[in-house]
Nucleic acid binder design. Structure first.
Length: 215
DNA sequence: ATACCGATTGGCT
DNA sequence: GCCAATCGGTATC
């Protein structure tokens, strides 16, 4: 388990999301017996960001993003997958960082059990897989990872890197799978990753929506 | 009440 | 590379 002195304070997250996101690369996330090292994240900037779930204002689902930094926003997508975000910025800004890629550094047996016969490189390659490996789902949304309630049986910790990431190894690019204006590479190059890491997803553009599907 | 769609993944060609 | 699966959230009627 991670030492609590390494836990990142709320002040770390209560900054503009474009500052927080690259700083999270190399950081560790622990939950339910598995610890990972982040290799890929994406920034989402709330109501000014057409790619964000918060773009059209608060809804029951996105409510937690409009609260203070340091809380987890987990969303369900494509009928199968739970994807985890760390809420950033100031209260009301609805900024968040999506955890997209990571390398397992502790809890290998638990991770292997959760991911079946997938290759180790793919355990946390992509936000849905990362959510599954860390067992982050519906019940974890809204959790405070900066000052968790005392006696919380399932601990969630975001902590500093064991080894600092070389800033020159940080790459940026358009966000994966974001359709519409939010996927514009010029306006929103808000995906951050560590160059050369095998646990970073391959880029896939957002699907072009032309007309409604039938059936 | 109902229709549409998604910040994806895994399996198959 | 291509595509179906799958269901909760959101908008609309």
């Amino acid at each position: 388990m991670e030492p609590d002195c390494e836990r990142l304070p709320r002040d770390f997250f209560a900054r503009p999301v474009l500052e927080v996101a690259p700083d999270l690369l190399g950081c560790r996330v622990s939950h339910a017996g598995v610890t990972v090292r982040l290799t890929e994240v994406e920034a989402y900037a709330g109501m000014v960001d057409p790619g964000s779930h918060a773009y059209r204002g608060p809804t029951p689902r996105t409510q937690v993003m409009f609260g203070p930094a340091g809380f987890l926003y987990v969303y369900f997508t494509y009928g199968n997958h739970w994807c985890a975000n760390l809420v950033c910025g100031h209260e009301g800004s609805a900024e968040a960082v999506l955890l997209r890629g990571a390398e397992v550094i502790d809890g290998f047996d638990v991770a292997r059990e959760r991911r079946g016969n997938a290759r180790e490189r793919d355990w946390c390659r992509g936000p849905g897989r990362l959510g599954q490996t860390l067992a982050l789902g519906r019940d974890e949304t809204g959790r405070d990872f900066c000052r968790p309630p005392l006696g919380d049986p399932v601990d969630l910790v975001v902590s500093r890197p064991q080894c600092e990431v070389d800033r020159s190894a940080v790459r940026t690019g358009p966000r994966v799978g974001v359709s519409g204006p939010g996927g514009d590479a010029e306006r929103f190059p808000w995906r951050f990753w560590i160059d050369g890491e095998p646990t970073v997803s391959t880029y896939r553009p957002g699907v072009v929506r032309t007309r409604a599907r039938s059936r």
